[in-house]
Design a protein around this nucleic acid. Sequence first.
DNA 1: GGCGGAAACTTATAGCTAGAACCTTTCAAG
DNA 2: CTTGAAAGGTTCTAGCTATAAGTTTCCGCC
Lengths: 142, 142
Amino acid sequence: MTTSEAEARAAAERNLCGLVGTLARHIEGHVRERAAALDLTTAQAVALRELTGPMTMSDLAGRMGCEPSNATFVIDRLEQQGVVERRPHPSDRRAKLLVLTQEGAGLRERLLGLLTEGSPLAALTPDEQSVLQELLERAAPR
Amino acid sequence: MTTSEAEARAAAERNLCGLVGTLARHIEGHVRERAAALDLTTAQAVALRELTGPMTMSDLAGRMGCEPSNATFVIDRLEQQGVVERRPHPSDRRAKLLVLTQEGAGLRERLLGLLTEGSPLAALTPDEQSVLQELLERAAPR
DNA sequence: GGCGGAAACTTATAGCTAGAACCTTTCAAG
DNA sequence: CTTGAAAGGTTCTAGCTATAAGTTTCCGCC
């Protein structure tokens, strides 16, 4: 491989990095737009989306891709709004178990409905989405 | 299509959104790590990476994917550090032309070298990167 | 030629996020 | 049993980012 070829590949890789960031911003913009319709910030919407069931603060922070201190901040607001509850963890007194309230569960359903329609990823067919998923998982090992 | 199939597809799409965000954070983490070696913040490194040649503040903000006000903040620091210069635009007195200083150009070369090695995207073959690029461009139209 | 709207950039402000310090509880080793 | 290290959460603070408002300049239009 010549140095110019290596240089071209490196440039393509940098370009690709930019594209990933661009798509991530598109998705975030979409989430923000839909979240605003429910009077939620982007972070609150992501938290609600990731609350697929009872989980600890650490679990949620991991799913949200943020630091635990930030999850505390976000959940504080959601708890004030009566969307989620902090319950004692049954077997670990350090941890707390996040549980959606009844209205929280309803709010989450509405949010998911809004998020699925008009997503940037809807531009791809299900097959293409599968390919994309596989590539992303390989590039970003958990 | 049954409702359960639609539900499954929607869930897969949400999962995919999370994966895009995860990869974006991996890339950002990689940039941050390498940038720190040169005493640069992540935003400064992205700005330097995107400064492929003389351009205006707006152009740079567009490439960085941030607001112009933030570009002002980032360039302020880079200018104080003698990395870049704000020159008057030859044909538009509103705009300013960003030009790398001599040391800025050297710093950029070193940064690009650091960024290309060990990138998360190196886990994919060039062919796979091409596929990924095409999918991302379709999902995130400019 | 002058006028109104729009673009480029900056400033000021508010909000979000990460990092470090701290407390409580758990777990493993001795 | 006790002791030290590590994990879960919270608080505090600093830094980054976006939004809104303001200034200068450009451009289309009358």
